[in-house]
Design a protein around this nucleic acid. Structure first.
Lengths: 290, 290
DNA sequence: CGGAAGATTGATAACTCTCAAAAATAGTGG
DNA sequence: CCACTATTTTTGAGAGTTATCAATCTTCCG
């Protein structure tokens, strides 16, 4: 029952004014290991997500999985460790030879240009894999780094490909996961093409909130860890940090969001979505209808 | 030998001041049909590209193909027709049930927002397929339209998937083609994140020139059809048409490009690449090393 | 020829960047 | 727990870039 206590304490903590660890890895370490072989009967999703780890939760939103398939996915996550801030998981131009699965924390994809410009290309929340495209070409065209202390599983690419091939459902689930990455990227293209800073920023906040909510990282009172600093926000949506700062201030002044010490609370989602022109559908468009 | 005459006339025409048809479909119609069953021995690539059609050329840059595999690809292109400007190939939210292969001309992917903003997400040059992701999910998250009169092949999705599955090389070639689309999209994200109009526009021109050159659409004297008007350029890189106009003028005044009546000539590629921070490597990174 | 679409121009407003400095916060070791 | 440093956030002023709007000119096409 210790495991449940661990979970409970997490949930309780989340209504306290500050959750220091929901993004850090300490909470989830035991979960990932203790419950690897659990094989519980299907419960509700919130329950599942905590017990089974985020990868299973994510794939279960795409496809039905039997016990063996869940076991396979958990096997991918068994060998995990904690990475410190700024650890480079994948280097542009390298051949990683393995895939990484984010179990807790936050990672990001980015490119660097000779002129110093850093463009952030995407974020990886718990349950996300980097990089499924290695099953096609084991050569990275961009970097992946860790944003906060994160627990991340590593699994040999060759074994991964062979395992996945044994299950139609897992194969399809992972294909859909990869496709969702593409869909999100297209939405980013749409968003960065917008002219106004407030709209771009709002859209990004909407997306992150929606994705984090899906993996249970937002507490009931609406607060969630949001460790993306203003320089990163700038490199994400293609503005300067100073301008990000002023845009955030406007959102705060208008009572749309609260943002303090790397924790965010969206007070007026309706308004944020409106200014963002945010249609969350693309994030759920691949989900099972059932 | 009529076929060769057809080719020759195309090549000759390309050194004349104006090539009216290199983007239009009339030239390629016969090629696609007449040579579907040619099965020539391997010649040099330039030769292949004209005779075999752009799809085979493209995949041959990724993988080695035997006669049967070439035949399969040509089979995909056999049922082709000409589409007029602005014909909508794929509608957001629809289930096309087939794939389209651009044989000649130019098509583009785009999204429309409620506020009227149109974002162009990518261009399809001859040899490009839309959309390989339908093999995963037959549901379009964006639109695809035709920019100039274009010859485009249509092939049933179900049959496509089954055929492809019979060949390891074709499967891998198509996977790489899909992956290249992703790589290009990431580069767009990098590019649209840049701050300066001149850089963004230059980068886009570099990319299009490089891709079109690869499929033999640029004549020896450097001219090529470039039917992307200033409104579309604006919607591509996220600026207004007026600003595009002024940026183009600067590029012309500086002697970097010539652009007249939908035909473009890049006079100073070195300078264009420099202002664009363009590293064409990403476009060739999946090619066979051989 | 005549209308439609596309390109160009000018003036002005709005937005975003740059630079530099100060304030607040986070992280570290004593 | 405090002191100290590094990082991050905030502020201000001014310059530079881009958007907006409306009009004119050019090209395209039937």
């Amino acid at each position: 029952m210790l495991r449940y206590l661990g979970l409970t304490s997490l949930h309780v903590a989340s209504s306290a004014p500050r959750i220091s660890a929901s993004f850090a890895d300490c909470d989830d370490i035991r979960l990932a290991d203790d419950h690897a072989n659990a094989g519980n009967a299907d419960g509700d999703y919130r329950h599942d997500s905590s017990i089974r780890g985020p990868l299973v939760t994510k794939l279960k939103s795409f496809v039905k999985l039997d016990v063996n398939e869940v076991e396979m996915l958990e096997g991918f996550c068994r060998n995990s460790r904690s990475y410190e801030v700024n650890h480079n998981l994948i280097q542009e131009g390298s051949n990683p030879g393995c895939i990484f699965i984010v179990l807790s924390g936050l990672a990001y994809r980015f490119k660097l240009q000779p002129d110093g410009h850093r463009q952030i290309l995407g974020y990886l929340v718990p349950g996300d894999i980097c990089d499924l495209s290695f099953t096609i070409l084991d050569w990275a065209d961009h970097n992946v780094s860790v944003l906060v202390p994160s627990r991340i599983a590593k699994f040999p690419l060759r074994k991964f490909i062979d395992s996945v091939a044994t299950s139609v459902n897992v194969t399809r689930g992972l294909q859909l996961a990869a496709h969702l990455d593409t869909v999100i990227m297209r939405e980013w293209l749409l968003n960065t093409g917008q002219s106004k800073a407030e709209q771009k920023l709002s859209h990004f906040l909407c997306e992150m909130a929606t994705r984090l909510k899906k993996v249970g990282k937002i507490s009931e009172d609406g607060w969630f860890d949001f460790p993306v600093n203003q320089v990163m926000l700038a490199d994400t949506i293609g503005l300067t940090a100073v301008h990000i700062n002023r845009t955030l201030q406007r959102l705060r002044r208008d009572g749309v969001i609260l943002l303090d010490r790397r924790r965010l609370n969206i007070l007026d989602m309706r308004r944020l979505r409106a200014t963002a022109n945010f249609e969350g559908r693309y994030l759920n468009s691949l989900d099972l209808v059932s």
